[in-house]
Lab assay of single mutants.
Amino acid sequence: MEVRTIKVFTTVDNINLHTQVVDMSMTYGQQFGPTYLDGADVTKIKPHNSHEGKTFYVLPNDDTLRVEAFEYYHTTDPSFLGRYMSALNHTKKWKYPQVNGLTSIKWADNNCYLATALLTLQQIELKFNPPALQDAYYRARAGEAANFCALILAYCNKTVGELGDVRETMSYLFQHANLDSCKRVLNVVCKTCGQQQTTLKGVEAVMYMGTLSYEQFKKGVQIPCTCGKQATKYLVQQESPFVMMSAPPAQYELKHGTFTCASEYTGNYQCGHYKHITSKETLYCIDGALLTKSSEYKGPITDVFYKENSYTTTIK
């Protein structure tokens, strides 16, 4: 009895394709271990004539594949690729409408935090270190965002349907971005203890939790000093293409032309909904596939993004 075979390709990165001759009487799992086709788990399936010449994702289970996976995804987590594939199996079914010149995501599976993050990423200057993220990001900007969303979920250790947080998501993504040249110098002034300067680099240099107003941050924000008295913390120097200011959701007025974009969060910790506000020729609110415009805006804002380049204080 002759062994019926077909020729397929296996890959971990969709760049390096490895030619395989597979036995049609055995499952993919018996031949390769966990195997995925377009995100779908085909591990328990036997090869079919229609699979001839198709590319299958496999887990990096030998040295060659491990090197290829690390170079593309910059992670050695053995569960990463499987999590990416199972997320992709959902995100490829989502709709990605162009809204006001940006790629958004039609609401499904509690994905409003991903839509808000995706919209924000198209408006701030950011370059990702893992080629996987950078490639998928370019495709997302062009309207094909399924891979990018699935990668975000995998890097953030999230599953489809789980509630997510924009600030946490951005923080994970910033860790995989090139923020080497970003720098922030802060000064804390206390009447009792004097003053202390701190220099922050990388992710810490672009994120701040405690106030939404970048102007206020430049002037000074009140913080408790270690001595128990009130101290003032203010920005001395900022070198970065953008800054992200966050605070627990509270009524906040966004003035046209003073910011790049913002995240609105309605609801409580267990259950809520994100919308995205962007400042173009007027203010726009993007909620999944829905767009509304207004000249002014007041609502429960939790993150505001500002364009920056270089700032030095005039406070002496």
Rank of each mutant, 00 (worst) to 15 (best):
K229H: 07
K95L: 13
D38V: 11
Y138D: 14
Q134F: 03
A140N: 00
Y208D: 04
E2K: 07
R4T: 14
Q20I: 09
N14S: 14
E162G: 02
F56Y: 02
V188H: 10
V206H: 03
I286R: 05
T282D: 12
Q134G: 04
V221G: 01
S279G: 03
T266N: 11
D165R: 06
F305L: 08
S181K: 10
P47R: 04
T312H: 10
R184I: 00
K46M: 00
T199G: 05
E68C: 01
I223H: 05
Y73N: 05
H256T: 08
Y297D: 00
L65N: 00
G39Y: 10
S104Y: 06
C261G: 08
V206E: 05
E168Y: 15
G210E: 04
Y172R: 11
L114F: 08
W94P: 10
G161T: 00
P131N: 00
H276V: 06
S246A: 01
H90N: 06
G143K: 02
S213H: 02
L118P: 06
V203L: 10
V22Y: 04
Q216F: 04
T302D: 10
C149Q: 08
S86G: 10
R4D: 14
V203Y: 15
T27D: 11
Y284D: 06
L163Q: 10
N110D: 07
M26Y: 10
L114T: 04
Y113F: 02
T35A: 01
R83M: 10
F56D: 04
K46H: 14
T232M: 14
H276A: 03
Y155C: 06
H74P: 05
V304F: 00
E2W: 13
N16K: 12
Q98S: 12
D287M: 12
K293W: 04
S240A: 02
N309A: 15
V236T: 03
T312V: 12
D287V: 11
N147K: 11
C261I: 00
H256L: 14
T120G: 05
E281C: 08
V42Y: 13
V185Y: 01
I301L: 01
K298I: 14
V203N: 00
Y274M: 02
V12H: 10
T260Y: 03
R184V: 01
T11I: 15
Y214W: 07
V12G: 08
V160I: 10
K229R: 11
T35W: 13
Q195S: 15
G202A: 06
L121V: 09
Y28C: 00
Y297M: 08
F9D: 09
N61M: 10
E71A: 09
V166E: 01
L118N: 09
E144F: 09
Y234K: 10
V8N: 09
Y36D: 09
K293G: 05
C227D: 01
E162K: 00
C193M: 04
L17T: 14
L37E: 10
L102G: 00
S213K: 00
E68N: 10
K255F: 05
Y265I: 01
K93D: 07
A146D: 01
Y297H: 07
M209A: 15
T313R: 14
L88P: 06
L102M: 14
A140P: 03
V3R: 12
G299F: 09
F259R: 00
L254V: 08
G220F: 00
P300L: 09
Y73Q: 03
A115K: 00
F80Y: 11
D287Q: 03
S213W: 06
P60A: 11
A140G: 06
E308Y: 00
Y208A: 08
Q197P: 05
T19C: 13
P249F: 06
S263G: 00
Q98K: 12
L118Y: 12
D303K: 02
C182V: 11
N16V: 01
T116A: 13
L81V: 14
P97V: 15
L290Q: 12
A145V: 07
K106Q: 15
A145P: 11
L102V: 07
V22K: 04
A40G: 12
N268F: 02
E253L: 03
Q123R: 02
E264C: 05
K44W: 09
G39E: 11
D38P: 05
Q251V: 08
S50K: 13
L254C: 00
K54H: 12
A117L: 00
K95N: 08
L186C: 09
L151R: 03
W107C: 02
C225S: 02
P131I: 02
P300Q: 10
T75S: 12
A136G: 08
S50R: 10
Y137I: 07
Q30G: 13
P248Y: 15
L81H: 11
C285H: 10
G288I: 00
Q175L: 06
V185K: 03
E168F: 14
R4A: 13
T55G: 05
V22D: 01
M85S: 06
A150I: 05
M209N: 15
G210P: 07
Q175N: 07
L121R: 03
K255V: 15
M26S: 15
T282W: 07
Y57T: 09
T266Q: 01
L119C: 14
G194D: 02
D23E: 12
G299N: 07
C271K: 14
S86C: 07
F259N: 12
V3I: 11
Y84C: 13
N178E: 11
